[in-house]
Amino acid sequence: MSAGDRRALILLIAGFTAWSFGFVLLYGLQALGCAYDWPAHRAILIAAYIVTLAPLAWLSLIKVRAEGEPASVLALSALWANRAALAAGVLTFFPATFASACI
């Protein structure tokens, strides 16, 4: 497996892996903030929202110039998957900006 191939495969799941981490992070912060009555709870949530979107945005811009058969096909799937992950991040985490965090 060449380096380019491995890269294409990793890219295919990178976006949604980042999305999963963002999900766990936000859900965790929400729970901790309520359990320990954080004063700046909302601000922390919004900051976390932005922080999780950054890698997703970056990933959805990477276009690998993959040479050769498997890598090129997978690279295109990866681009779609990473853009989907960005969109999923923007939409699913958006409630962090307004929804009631502790009731």
């Binding site: 999963s20 096909v73 799937s77 990866a78 992950a85 699913t92």
Partner: peptide, 18 residues
């Protein structure tokens, strides 16, 4: 849409854990 379906399967696999 072979490639789009692959992306869709990967997306489903992950989303379904959320």
């Amino acid at each position: 849409g072979y490639r789009a379906i692959i992306a869709a399967i990967v997306a489903m696999g992950f989303l379904s854990f959320g």
